[in-house]
Amino acid sequence: MTELLLILVSTVLVNNVVLTQFLGVCPFMGVSKRLDTSLGMGVAIIVVMAIASLATWLFHYHVLIPLDVGYLQTVAFVLIIASLVQFIEIMLHKTSPALYRALGIYLPLITTNCAVLGIAVLNIRKQHSLLESLAFSLGAGLGFTLALWIFAGLRERLELSAVPKCFQGTAIALITAGLLSLAFMGFSGLVKV
């Protein structure tokens, strides 16, 4: 149990997907203009990441390994994740139109998100058990949401401040992201992995 908690905390704070491993930086920059859309994207990432890493874990150890075709890992994972996201999208459109509209373009964007695929592959590389990979992917999703949420708050605030002309737009956003990453370095001694 402590093992799982440790994995969870270390992936949320210490090894934050975006801010220390720079996975999934594209939505981190792209969907962080407003607090509410960033939260929607975060929830979508958490759900997809958790389901996808469970599915890919099961697939890897029960299909790829017994059949001795481990080298198909990347293409098989991409296929599984893409179909999963498509399935979730169809389900959501029927069962919860409001959430479907709120997520909008972000849901299909997740199919090719490197954070989702990265976490699935890392689960195999680090030889996690099923429960560990669930904790790992949940932590990664939560960490992503936390980073995205904080960053969106900063950018909303930034929009109202007098930014020097040459820094305006993407430049100041990237600088802010760098400072946020610097702040997250402070967590690096929290958990000994």
Binding site: F59, V63, Y71, L72, A76, S83, Q86, F87
Partner: peptide, 16 residues
């Protein structure tokens, strides 16, 4: 390789 990947695609397509 062909069969396993094809099977995954088939199952995914059927479900979708």
């Amino acid at each position: 390789a062909i069969l396993s990947l094809g099977a995954v695609a088939l199952v995914a397509a059927l479900i979708l």
